[in-house]
Amino acid sequence: MWPKEIEEILPKTIQSLLANANNIEKNNIQEIRLRLLKPLEICFASNFSYLSKSGFTNDISKAYITTFDDCKQVLQTISNHSMYAIEEQLRQGYITFAGGHRIGIVGKVVVDNGKIRTIQHVTSFNIRIAKQIVGVATAVMPDLYDSIRHRPYHTLIVSPPQCGKTTLLRDIIYSFSKGMPTLGIPSHKVAVVDERSEIAGSVHGIAQADLGPRTDVLDACPKAEGMMLLIRSMSPQIITVDEIGTAADAIAIDEVLHAGVGIITTAHAFNLDELIERPIMQEMIKKKIFDRYILLTNTPKIGTVQGIYDKNRLKLSARRVFVG
């Protein structure tokens, strides 16, 4: 589905060009990249093209060139005419807007005390279209719930970047929150610490992605602090966070386990051997904190589950499950 929200933030000129473009191809767009005075680039899952008057093209000479006004208008629309309101996000380099889509931004950085204060003269935008794929987690869900002790397994999703890690996590959250009666999984109270507003794609604290009926989202909060806060305040049965890796995260996760709360989280790595080379992860793996490891890969396509491993890092089964 081609999301309406994307169209709304694009300048009229680009909107009309997209209106001419092939609808089927439009649905496969993953990124729209605007670079000042450079051809407008459209990225699909595995290839890219430019945008011309007659639709998508690979001929660079026909491509639409992004103008200064285009950049100005996009910035004006995403900031809602108020740069001060997106100051904090500018510092991070991206802005999440309605629909959970995000825009990456680069330009001239203003530095204050060695830290990024703001980005001025924005020259490149990367509009990344968020896709919520309902049902990607269905295949893995039976392996994530301990039907004997009636509790979810502590799970770590291991994946290289751009392999559908967050998409899978999102659907796992949804599945646990809603419950899956057919698999004998009841509905759980789920709490999410969404440090980078990536899981829920919150705008003004309102989750844009559907994370299920019993999910509480703590938006933009540092992970370690957020986990502690949620245990105290929301009495969750499952806590989920994205991309753990620091010592503070490890301590907080320990705390979560002691509170008897299930944890579902993710980490960047190409495989378990690489993961174990990271000191903090190594310690956590050795302590057998996680009951399940889900390893994702992008071959043959994004979101392929390469394997699910148990706490001793033994593969549960050799079958390959397609989830993307």
Partner: peptide, 12 residues
């Protein structure tokens, strides 16, 4: 509105 709410112009 700017200091406490960081409210964008239209809402402010």
């Amino acid at each position: 509105e700017i200091v406490y709410g960081l409210t964008p112009l239209p809402n402010a």
